[in-house]
Amino acid sequence: MSALLEVKGLFAGYGGIPALHGLDFSLEEGGVTTLLGANGAGKTTTLRALCGMIHARGDATFAGKRLIGMQTEDIVRLGIAHVPEGRGTFTRMGVEENLQLGAMTRRNGGDIKQDIERVYDHFPRLRQRRMQQAGTLSGGEQQMLAIGRALMLRPRLMLLDEPSFGLAPLVVREMFDILGALNRAEKVSMLLVEQNASLALSLADTAYLLETGRIVTSGPAAQIREDEGVRRSYLGY
């Protein structure tokens, strides 16, 4: 079986300054792959390159389709939902409008209503705030809204950019439990980018370690967790 997402020799950068120097990695259908790395390693850049938000070179194949060179709007239509760095909330719109926007590429109105209810079942706090302006939500609630908005696409693959960033430990735990449940119950594949390695490794099955735009270590999550070097530099024990 071939991988759902297969990346080979991915290069990208900003204004002529390279940030990624030829990444190779892959993700199995139904799996959770994590890209770990310190601040500035190139994790966000990788996700941006995959969704056509910045210019990139190399190969990235998703379910047999070449992503490099495609428009972001068309990549979304393949079933790739990106939960971006900074959460990408439509701050001046209502919570429910944010969710409706997540389903913008879908047609069937009735299904969309049901899916909104499903998101509220996952995140009951969003239901209480459904009519509230999204910019007034707390950081954790906005992250839940961002994940909910991504779910509204009924994605095959979710790209998650540091969902734990800036959140209280309890909220983070709750969020990762929900992500795990989504992955198991709805078979959503996930590419998870994190600085918090122990957290990411608890959810992922495969891990890659990124340093200044290059992959330096990779393997099954369980094995990476035991890796002496990784433990010392990233897990702190």
Binding site: E73, V76, P84, R92, L101, M104
Partner: peptide, 23 residues
């Protein structure tokens, strides 16, 4: 829906693209 898309595209074009709005 198209009105909502237009508002989204104006308010936050980057996020709008990420949900598939043709900005």
């Amino acid at each position: 829906r198209i009105g909502l898309s237009m508002r989204a595209a104006a308010a936050n074009p980057v996020s709008a693209r990420l949900v598939g709005v043709r900005v």
